[in-house]
Every structure is written in structure tokens, then in C-alpha cells.
Design a protein around this nucleic acid. Structure first.
Lengths: 200, 200, 200, 200
DNA sequence: CATGAATGAGTGTTCATTCAT
DNA sequence: CATGAATGAACACTCATTCAT
């Protein structure tokens, strides 16, 4: 006697996000997700064709959320744009340890796949590039505000700076306890580079 | 029909290093290693007591090698110490994709393990902390030479800088094709931070 | 292509009981059971969490059955209580060669385990001690009827007598063909000891 | 450079006997035996064609020893022949827990083999039936002395009595702590049966 | 659309046995 | 005759996926 569950898709997303945040991909089984949601394993497959797609979907959703928060924060700020942007991103990222780690792997172009077929699959879904792009655009916007300058979005070194920021937040958070100093360090790193290499 | 194979230990180390470089831990099976080496599975266990120790052994060996190369290069240089250090580290790291990724995970304190027991195991073998420390000390040494200054090894921001360097080499290499510009970027990033925040 | 199989649990129990009756624990593999039942290995694990629990479950079930049969027989008898008890126990035990052997090992406190952990596991599930106790109580009851005497359950020599009975049924059955004479021998053995040592 | 070891055969026998006494067959590996003896695994196979034959050989040797001890004790006694025989057998058997357990299996005609081929092998080596027979003959001899009677060796009930004695010594020893009472019980069991059924 | 029993290829690991040295 | 590295079938167990109900 199948029960009809309201907002089941959302429920699955929420629960598996929670699990994937706390555990690496391999350690989260479909059984575990299903039992946590309170449904049958088979039901998961009505919403996602396989484990990997479920993972990706959940991941993307999570980044959308982060984007929304960043955007809101950007709007209401009047000064210290860069510092603030780093702070918010930092606080968002520390909420999703495992997902962020996965981001790194994504950046590294290695997602536990070696099969060419899977790589292909992966390319097709193009992960949350879209969202990451939006977050990048926000990054450019706040830099323009902060330094009162017009920037070229396609500048490779700005891309690099953004990648560095993303990757080093979880890195520092994991390894150095003093949160405030981590943020200061990141701010100084970006700021000094920007001043020396971009502004002049 | 047991045949004695020459340099088998080395062969195993070489082959599994290759496999671990290209694939994450979970995707490299003992069967795969054995068949790649051209031996029976059981034979692997004559050289390493289990998969994890094999992995660690191979990993550590690989870092020792990197350290030796870095050290040699440091000695023979007369100028551009930092630039040279980054170049050598970059070229070493791009050789070992997956191992480097593992370094990142190590730094992130997450090695696909959640079992307390395994964590304990891990602590006991103390991974290549020693080697990493040696590479860090080399880093401090070349900074002292480059900027003609005496540095405090335990400075938290120097630690941060080193972690950033290590993590961003594979990051940039993976995502930006122009190798030379990647190295320049890293050099500028470190250099500008150093000049602005450490020197004065 | 999963098919729903009727009475699979029962089928597994029946088949593995058969296999465990005929072969020692170590020589019955999960693969063997599965293939004999005509299912996949994984399916076994839907019913029992591991081999040991499967074994225990099947074993215990088998003893419960024996107890029921003994109890029924006890009730409907009017005379020759002891002889009858031995006969029924004998006929039950000869049905389960290997299980009975396992009882012996159980009595011997050795189940092919030396790991403290496993011993602990074993203690926790408390094997069929309960059932054995019930069979023992039946034994005392029929002795009281047979000899018209009130017995002290905790008498060590009665325990010994019961252990002897249990152990020697399979022993004699295995080694001496004449079933009737085996039963007579056991009856005489118990009877003469009882008359000489317990009654007076 | 192979070393020549004196009395190696004897050394192997002694050491594996020790191991088999303390651990069940499956838990004693050839590696373990070899390393305990201080030789290479391969060397074991110069003396015994396989693990099973090694086990059997060692087992048989052990019973020969027991026979010698029993025989010596029989000779020097003047009275209480049966009690004394039981005492010596009891003390011998408690020395070899695991071997004795194996005796039981032997009696039960089941030695961890189901392969017809292995059973055949087994038949051919005819285990220590010879030694057991000698111990049985000693048993008959002391009964004749004890009860001053001439006995028929081929009496099935005497065989049964002997089997009961052998099997119940380890059984009682394992389950009832009071050694003296165990021996008394066994003595009474045999004695009462003998008086009631054989003497008259 | 929900169920969850069934699937089976896959995992790391063991160990009796062989045989080139 | 001693060595011990090499072998590979075997083990218990896992888990993403399927599909009859």
C-alpha cells in the first residue's frame, strides 16, 4: 500500500544533502538515504536515475542557496565589500564540509570516475558551472565596488584569484582554528595581490 | 608455478603509484594492481599487509622523492629562490595528480575514513608529516634567502602561505592551461603578500 | 530481475539446516547455501545479518522443534517414561548429525572461535541454553515420574547424567548399528546409576 | 643456504602437536607451524604431503604416548584398577583439549571432510584405530582384574562402555569444575552398569 | 507512484600448496 | 634437503540497481 508523500523530492534533496555534507560520497549508501527519508530504496530511483545524479542534483541545489545568500548580503552592504564577501562565503562553506571537498575534486576534474563513459555523462550535466559562474560574477562586482575600477571579467588572473579563494577557505578552516585570522589572511592575500598586480 | 620476479617490490610500488596517481583510493582494487603488475593478488600481501599500508607506503615514497629533488635544486641555485622553488614543486606535483589530491585530503583531515579505528591506525603511521615538514623547512629557508630576512618558523601566516602554495598548484594546473602564467600567478600571490604583510 | 519467492525465509532455514546437519560450520559457505536454495548470495543477507547469526538461528529453531516433540510425547505417556524419553531424543538427534555435533562443541565451549570478540558475541545471543534447559527440565520431570521421587534440580550429578545422555546418543548412533540395543544400553546405563547412586 | 636441522621431523611433530592441542584444526596454519618450528613452509612438505596428513600423524603420535603412560600405570597398580585407569585417562585427556575434541569427531566419523575422495584417503590411513584398540585392550584387562572375571572382548556393550568413557571425560571436564567428583561420577557410572548388567 | 526483496559483480583478505633457486 | 616468493581459488560480506507487486 504505497503512501503518497508530499514534497517527497524536496525531502530527498534535503536529507541527502545533509548526509553528503557529513560523509564522503562512498560512505553514503542509497539504503541509508532511503531509510533516513523514511521511504523505500526503489523510490529514490523515481526521482534520480542513479546515485551519482542524485549527488550532483543535491550538490547543485546547495550552491544555489549559497548564491542567494551571497547576493542578499552584497546588496545590503555599504563598505568593506571584499571582506564581507569573504566572510559570508567562509561561513557558508564551513556549513558544508564534504560538499566543499567535492567542489575541490570537481575543480580538480576528478570525481571518483575513471570510466570514459562516466566522464562523458559528467560533461553533459555540466555540474553547477552555472551557479559557480554567478558567484564569480558577484565576486567581480564586489571587487569593482571595493576598488572603484572597471574589471575585465575574462581576465585569467581574476579567475585564478577566485579559484584560490574558493579552495583556500575550506583549506584554512580545516587546518587553522582562528577563524578571524583565517579571514584576515585571505583578505590580505587577495588584497595585496590585487593592489600590486591588478590596480597597477 | 611460482617464478621469482626480479625487482618485484619496486615494480609493485611503481605500478600502484601510477594507479593511485590516476585514480582515487577506492577505485583502485588490489586485483587491479595485481593484474597490472602481472602477478597474483596474494603476492601483493607478501609485500604489504593490506591495501591501506600499500597506499601509504607508495605515497610516502613519492613525497620523499619530491623532497630530494627540491633539496638538490635549492642547493644549486644562486638567485630567484622562490620562483625556482615554485617551479620545481609545480613540476613535481603535476606528475602525481591523484597523490596530490590525497595530500589535499590529508590536509583536510579526511581520508574517506570515519571509523575511529581507522583514524587511529592513521595517526599511528603518522603519514608523511615528517616529509611535509621537511618540505616546509625548505620553503622557509628559501624565503629567508630570497628576502634576506630571518623568519620565525612557527609564524601561523607562513604556515598558511605554504598550505596555499601546495593546494593551489594542482588547482591551477588542472584548471588553467598556461603553465608559465600559473607559476607567475603563484609567485606574484606569494610575493605581494610577503612584501606587504611580512616584510613590513 | 528480482522475483518474489514464496516462503523464502523458510526455504533458507530448511536448506541451511540440511547443510549444517551434514557438514561442519566452516565447510558450509554462504555461496553454497545460496546456490542450493537457488538464490543470490546477497539475498541471504536480507534474512540474516551474517553467517554466524544464520547458523545460530537455524540451530535454535531446530532445538525448539525437538523440545516440542519431546514435550508432546511426555504428556501422552503412561509408563516407561525414561525409556520413552530416550527413544524420542534418540530419534530426534539422529536426524541432525552435524547440529548435534555442534551441541557437543557448545557443551565443550569451543565453537571454532578463539577471538574474545566472537566469544562475547556468542555469549550475548545466549545460544539455545533456554531450550536446552527446557529439555533438561523435562528430563527431571520424567525421572520423577519414573522413580516416584522428588528430585533436586540443581543436583550436579543429575546435570552430569543429562550431559552424558545428550552426548552419547549421537556417539552410539554413529558407531553401533543396532539402534534398539543402543537405546537399551543408554537406558541401562542411566537406570543402574540412578538406582545405585540416587535412589539410595 | 639451507641449514641442516637435526631431528627436524621430531621437532615438527612436537611443535604442531602443541599447536593442535591448543587450537582447532582450521586455526592452525602451515605458516604458523613453520614459523614456530623456525623453518620455511616448504620444508613441512618434505615431511608430510599436506596439512591433513601432518595433523593425523601428530595426532597418532600423541595417542601412542597416552597408551604408554596408561600401560605403565596399569602394571604398577595393585588395587582400584578401574578408578586408577579412569584417573590416568582423565589426566592425559585434559592435557590435550583440542586433540581430544578431534577424537570425538573421529568417533563421530566426521573430520571436516565431505569430499568422498578425502573420506577415502582417510580410510586408507586408518587413523589411530590401532592405538585406540590397544587402549581398549588395556581397559578390558583392568576390568578383568577389578571384577575378577573373564570378559569377552567383542561384547558390544563393553565397546559402548569404553566409548562412553572416552567421550565423557572431556565432556565432564569441560563443564564441571570439580575434577574429583567428575572422576567419581564416571567411576560410579561404569561400576553400577557393570555390576548390574555384566556381572549378572 | 511506492515498495523492498532479489540480484550479482565486486571488495579486501587468507592460506594450502608449488617449485625455481 | 631447505627456502620462501608466488599462486589463485576461496571466503564473508556490500551495495547500486532492478522490477514484480
Amino acid at each position: 500500500m504505497p503512501k503518497i508523500i508530499e514534497n517527497l523530492e524536496e525531502e530527498i534533496a534535503k536529507t541527502s544533502l545533509k548526509l553528503f555534507k557529513e560523509n564522503p560520497y562512498q560512505n553514503v549508501s542509497m539504503r541509508k538515504i532511503a531509510s533516513e527519508v523514511g521511504i523505500a530504496v526503489g523510490t529514490l530511483y523515481n526521482y534520480y536515475p542513479n546515485k551519482w545524479k542524485l549527488y550532483i542534483g543535491v550538490f547543485e541545489e546547495s550552491w544555489k542557496e549559497t548564491y542567494q545568500i551571497l547576493k542578499m548580503n552584497c546588496k545590503k552592504n555599504e563598505a568593506d565589500y571584499l571582506k564581507n564577501y569573504i566572510e559570508v562565503l567562509y561561513s557558508e562553506m564551513k556549513k558544508k564540509k564534504s560538499i566543499v571537498r567535492e567542489l575541490y575534486r570537481y575543480i580538480m576534474n576528478d570525481l571518483e570516475m575513471d570510466e570514459a563513459e562516466q566522464k562523458e555523462k559528467f560533461k553533459r550535466i555540466r555540474f553547477p558551472r552555472v551557479v559557480i559562474n554567478q558567484i564569480y560574477e558577484l565576486f567581480i562586482m564586489i571587487l569593482e565596488k571595493e576598488f572603484e575600477i572597471k574589471l575585465e571579467k575574462d581576465n585569467q588572473d581574476l579567475y585564478r584569484l577566485f579559484a584560490v579563494l574558493q579552495t583556500n577557505i575550506p583549506l584554512l578552516h580545516q587546518n587553522f582554528e582562528e577563524e578571524e585570522q583565517n579571514i584576515d589572511f585571505l583578505y590580505d592575500l587577495l588584497n595585496s595581490y590585487f593592489e600590486k598586480k591588478i590596480l597597477k
